[in-house]
Amino acid sequence: MTLSQLQYLVALDTHRHFGDAAAACNVTQPTLSGQLRRLEDELDVELIDRSHQPVVPTAAGESIVNEAREVLAARDRLATTAAEVKDRVTGTLRLGMLPTLSPYLLPLVLPSLETAYPEVSLVLREWPTTEILDALRTDALDAALIATDEAGPGLHDRILFTEPFVGYVAPSHRLADRESLGPTALSIEDLWLLSEGHCFRDQVLQVCGRAPSAPQAAAQFESGSLETLVRLVRTSGGMTLLPRLATHHMPEAERATFVVPFADPPPTRNVRFVTRRRHKQRLTDAVVETLCDALPETVVLA
């Protein structure tokens, strides 16, 4: 039994496809398949139900997969501990981020991280909250940035910063001339929204005084991308709400024309750093410190 075989097994459980698992492990599909056959022969138990599509672990395989994740996590801890003894910050951090956060935060953070910690490697995954939390619980991620009220049982989280919302309003919109917005002035009927499954959508609906599960008054276009909503406002009118970091990269002329702040106190979201295990502590501390140092003054550090 080898660590590589355990890595292949975990990858197959994660991707549920031999080709995708092999690509994730940077080996050929025959190599991965053959090594898993050898592992099954050595353990004398069938680990994978190959008749099922997509492939899934057998009942025995699920137990072995969980143990394999523990072994691989222990391997990573050993490597991190060895690096810390040498007073080095090194290693790989598998980090999940929300689609409403990563396009705006990563350009601020990555250059500083690469300069300060050249031996640190980030493996980044942009997923919705539910997928991020599932990946943390199965050790497919080491850490994540989310924006829900709490991460849930079995996970450790802390608030890193609080981010206000702003309006992104077409010049033709009835609220375009306002110096500031108030929640009571908003109307869900002329607000472009993210599609269901995005926590920012639920937060916007709550700002408007509507429960996420409440039926809409009329059919509306919904998008999975904030950038698509911005383009819709620019080309078709209406308005949308954005987290403040989404405006950081905009030219000053665009902010002056389209961005309208909320009156104090504005609606906000808390961005949390979440882990399942307390490992890779020095590595996660370095990433968090660099991230917080790179944040603009438009957000409030915890």
Rank of each mutant, 00 (worst) to 15 (best):
L93N: 00
S121N: 11
I132A: 01
S112T: 08
R125L: 08
P99N: 04
A140V: 05
E114F: 03
T80W: 15
M97C: 02
W127E: 07
E114S: 09
I146A: 07
M97E: 03
V109F: 07
V85A: 15
P107Q: 11
L133A: 05
E114R: 12
D87N: 14
L108D: 02
L98Q: 01
P118Q: 08
E114M: 07
S112R: 15
T92H: 11
T80E: 13
V123K: 11
S121G: 09
S121R: 15
L133Y: 04
E131Y: 03
L145P: 03
Y104C: 08
D134I: 12
A82K: 08
W127R: 09
V120K: 11
L145K: 08
L101Q: 08
I146K: 04
P107G: 11
A83R: 06
L124S: 13
L101D: 03
E131W: 01
G96M: 03
V89W: 06
V120G: 08
L95N: 04
E114P: 01
V109A: 06
D139A: 14
A135C: 11
T92V: 15
R94E: 04
E131G: 06
T92N: 08
D87L: 12
G91N: 00
E126Y: 03
T92D: 02
P128A: 11
T90F: 05
A83I: 05
L110P: 01
M97I: 01
L141M: 12
A143P: 10
L113I: 00
L101W: 06
T80F: 14
D134T: 15
L145I: 00
K86R: 15
V89S: 05
T81A: 15
P103D: 11
D142A: 11
T80M: 15
P103Q: 12
G96H: 02
G96N: 02
L133N: 05
L110V: 10
E119H: 14
L110G: 04
L136A: 08
T81H: 13
L108T: 04
E131V: 07
L105A: 03
V89K: 06
R88L: 09
T81S: 15
S121C: 13
S112L: 14
P128H: 03
L98E: 01
T138C: 07
P111T: 07
L133M: 10
T81Y: 13
T138P: 00
E119Q: 14
Y117H: 14
T100P: 04
V89E: 03
L95W: 02
L136T: 03
R137E: 01
T81Q: 14
G96V: 00
A135H: 09
G96C: 04
T100R: 09
G91L: 00
G96Q: 02
Y117E: 03
A143V: 06
T130V: 15
V109P: 04
D139S: 06
P118E: 06
L133W: 04
K86P: 07
T129G: 14
R88Y: 02
E84G: 05
L136S: 05
E114C: 00
P107Y: 09
T138D: 02
Y104S: 14
D87A: 14
T92L: 12
D142K: 07
L105S: 02
K86M: 12
L101K: 04
R94V: 06
P103S: 14
V89A: 06
L122V: 15
T92A: 09
T138S: 10
A143C: 06
E119I: 06
T90Y: 02
K86H: 13
T92S: 11
V85K: 11
R137A: 13
